[in-house]
């Protein structure tokens, strides 16, 4: 079930993400954003792993996902690194404590200015799957 897909958008990038659990949704959204930041591993220094701890509290699970991605985007710019992996310490509808792992990269593909709340709405369907659209301001 863990999947993401780039959808058309007039000016920016719209990403549809889905996972079998909230953890999977966060992980696949992170993976999707990482691919937008740097599609290939070219220029990546794999021996130099960077880990960062993120702690986020938000009003609901949609805001939590967007705030989580925004925080990781900030870390990417600060560290000039791409974060692709996540280990959760705690995750519920309003709180996320996790460690993200990534590698330094020599330049990014796209300048993601921000992760927006536009169209974001995390839905938990009858099968227990979680999905949402995420729009990135490029």
């Amino acid at each position: 079930m863990k999947t993401y897909k780039v959808m058309p958008h007039t000016a920016d990038v719209r990403l549809w993400v889905a996972g079998g659990s909230l953890e999977e949704l966060f992980a696949v959204a992170l993976e999707g954003m990482a691919v937008l930041i740097k599609e290939s591993d070219e220029g990546v220094a794999p021996d130099n792993i960077i880990t960062e701890k993120v702690e986020i509290e938000s009003a609901d699970q949609t805001a939590l996902l967007i705030d989580f991605l925004s925080t990781v985007l900030t870390l990417s710019h600060q560290n000039k690194a791409v974060f692709r992996h996540i280990m959760f310490e705690k995750l519920n509808e309003t709180n996320c404590i996790a460690e993200v792992r990534g590698y330094p990269a020599d330049g990014f593909d796209d300048d993601i200015k921000a992760v927006t709340y536009h169209e974001a709405n995390v839905v938990n369907d009858k099968s227990g799957n979680f999905s949402t659209m995420i729009v990135f301001d490029i």
């Binding site: 780039v6 959808m7 058309p8 958008h9 007039t10 000016a11 920016d12 990038v13 490029i138």
Partner: peptide, 8 residues
Amino acid sequence: GRSMSRTK
């Protein structure tokens, strides 16, 4: 003003 998506 953009009129076409980046993907397209």
